[in-house]
Amino acid sequence: MTIRAGVAGWPIAHSLSPAIHGAWIRAAGLDADYTAFGPETETQFRDLVGQVRQGSLRGLNVTAPWKEVALALADEVSDTARACGSANLLWQDKGVLRADSTDGHGLMAALAEQAPALQGPGRVAVVLGAGGAARAAVHALGQVFAEVWIINRTPARAEALIAAVQPHTSARLTSSHAVSDAALIVNALSVPPEVDLTALSPGAVLMDMTYRPLMTGFLSAVSERGHTVVDGLAMLIGQARPSFATLFGLATPDIDVRAEALRVLGEPT
């Protein structure tokens, strides 16, 4: 019987997850299907999660704006998802709806791949934004960096993030002027960030979670100034690997899935 899984979010048409998981499914020779679902309302998302509970869907990756709702709907929550205050993976296990967050894993995998010289101990990381992906970033970075600072236009949302990741992660709200102290700046906003590039320390690494386009204006600007940059596609693939293992029960095949994703994006490989 065909294993059915997918990704849920709104908007969803831009998602590369079906291309990535589809490439692995074909390489593994699985009888499986991974679909982009577009629940626009919370009611529609809850109905989709109901299909996971009933077993007609093996599970779902979850993207904005449903990550926090996904966490609330689960019966059992991983320590990581609880610490993040959001979940990007839901699946049914012997009648139990489980939730996890693999975004932090993806972020750290991307940094290891594209900024291997970056060192966290004793240093500061700055996260721009306070949504579900930002929560996962703050939690993951807090395990490596001495401090994680959050810059967000709405202070109340940032304070909610800080409350969610406590006591697992030490984080605090800061102003946009604090980037000069950062060894790493991660853009978790869906819009171009407002950062004074002249204030960056010379060795600062910049990451953008967005992958359409692959080289965002933010990354292009800092790359031209000589900074190491990390793209959102590396993070997307990094978080997809443990998701695939959970949803389909085997490790990802050893193929160049980034090349397939770049082909779909229309980017040079």
Rank of each mutant, 00 (worst) to 15 (best):
R58T: 10
R53E: 09
W149H: 08
D33Q: 13
T252Q: 00
V257R: 01
S190R: 15
A163V: 03
S223I: 08
I25M: 07
G104P: 03
S220R: 05
G95N: 15
M209Y: 07
L197N: 10
L219S: 03
T269Q: 13
R225W: 04
A64Y: 14
A182R: 06
L184Q: 08
G106E: 03
V126T: 01
T210F: 06
L128S: 04
G55D: 08
G6D: 00
P121W: 13
A199L: 09
R241W: 02
L236H: 03
D93M: 12
V138Q: 05
D256N: 02
T43K: 14
V96F: 14
S201M: 15
M207S: 00
V205F: 05
W91M: 00
S176I: 07
G106R: 03
D93L: 06
A72N: 13
D75G: 11
A240M: 04
Q114W: 01
R46D: 14
H177A: 15
T269I: 15
H21F: 09
V52A: 02
L16I: 08
L128C: 14
V205N: 00
T154E: 06
V230W: 01
S220P: 01
E194P: 08
I185S: 00
A5D: 01
K94W: 10
L173A: 11
G232Y: 03
G50V: 10
G6S: 06
R157E: 00
Q166R: 10
A146S: 14
E68S: 13
A251F: 12
H177P: 11
A32Y: 11
R225K: 14
G232P: 04
A28P: 11
P11W: 07
E42V: 12
G226A: 01
R123E: 11
G95F: 11
D181N: 14
L141H: 04
F45P: 05
L118S: 08
A182Y: 01
L90G: 04
R263G: 13
A64W: 14
